[in-house]
């Protein structure tokens, strides 16, 4: 038998943050999706610079629903932080309650995003400006939608017999991804809503 130099039997079977593989998976997805957002914004700015009709096309967007969306989204970072903390402490009761809260915040955000779309003054087929508005809002909307769906499934899981051990690590991972959803919105919001007003 080969010479054993390390015994790993005492190691934990799960951990939190960047120690575990799912965190790196999520991180990689944030990188590639972030690249997608950056390129989308880049394309928008490219047209804004090169296209002579842009000033005429770029009608400023309605600020009401987007402001509500942005406020709720930014505020959701607080319960998100609390989930992360509760997950690290493996506090099942808190995690359950906070996940319920985050799920409802997510659903509210989806409604707000729908209102945001309905208030858009341009259609995607009007001009390239309209196409970009719909694309970027839609792209971010898909991220909100998938993470809310993810949160809902996790919430249900936490109320079943699976709500133990590694599930806390998943909850923490889910919270990590939500930060990305929040952060990726801020440059989009600035570019889509405020740049044409400058």
């Amino acid at each position: 038998m080969a010479r054993s130099v390390i015994d790993v039997s005492g190691l934990p079977t799960y951990a939190f943050g960047s120690r575990v593989t799912p965190w790196w998976g999520t991180f990689s997805f944030c990188l590639l999706e972030g690249t997608g957002f950056a390129l989308g914004i880049g394309g928008y700015l490219y047209l804004a610079v090169t296209n002579t009709h842009w000033a005429k096309d770029a009608v400023p967007l309605n600020l009401v629903w987007s402001a509500a969306f942005t406020l709720v989204l930014v505020a959701s970072a607080i319960p998100n932080f609390l989930i992360k903390r509760a997950a690290l402490q493996e506090n099942l009761r808190s995690v359950r309650l906070l996940l319920l809260a985050m799920s409802s915040v997510g659903l509210v955000l989806i409604v707000l995003r729908i209102m945001e779309f309905s208030a858009l003054p341009v259609r995607w087929s009007d001009n390239a400006y309209g196409s970009f508005i719909w694309l970027l809002l839609g792209l971010h909307g898909v991220h909100v939608l998938t993470d809310v769906a993810d949160t809902l499934v996790l919430t249900v899981l936490m109320f079943t017999r699976h709500g133990t051990g590694k599930r806390f690590s998943d909850a923490e991972d889910n919270a990590f991804y939500w930060y990305f959803v929040v952060l990726s919105w801020l440059p989009l919001y600035a570019v889509l809503y405020w740049l044409p007003r400058l």
Partner: peptide
């Protein structure tokens, strides 16, 4: 041939 190994999995 004397490759050290990890044990305990």
């Amino acid at each position: 041939d004397d490759t050290p190994v990890v044990s305990g999995l």
